[in-house]
């Protein structure tokens, strides 16, 4: 699967952009938090697309955000 790029996103309607990112994020999150993957992905999709693209390319920043999201969910 080719990497998702800003230009690929820009070619899609806004409502499809988040969906495209979510389809990439979900399997990565599912590997780490199987039970919470749907909720964590939904939370992270509220972040700006430009930052989400960086997270898809950087496992460290993605995992940091995942842990932040889990902490928020557990406090919620």
């Amino acid at each position: 699967q080719e990497p998702l790029t800003a230009s690929m996103l820009a070619a899609a309607p806004l409502h499809e952009q988040k969906q495209m990112i979510g389809e990439r994020l979900y399997p990565l999150i599912h590997d780490v938090h199987t039970q919470l993957a749907g909720k964590i992905t939904g939370m992270l999709l509220e972040i700006d697309n430009s930052e989400l693209l960086l997270m898809l390319e950087s496992p460290e920043s993605l995992h940091a955000k995942i842990e932040e999201a889990v902490a928020v969910l557990q406090a919620h």
Binding site: H15, G22, E23, Y26, G38, T41, G42, E46, L73, H76
Partner: peptide, 22 residues
């Protein structure tokens, strides 16, 4: 509103409900 349904969950192949807030 109620926070019980927050966050909008994402599931592959299913349109994400969170888009309603954008």
């Amino acid at each position: 509103g109620s926070s019980i349904n927050w966050p909008p969950e994402f599931h592959p192949g299913v349109p994400w409900k969170g888009l309603q807030n954008i």
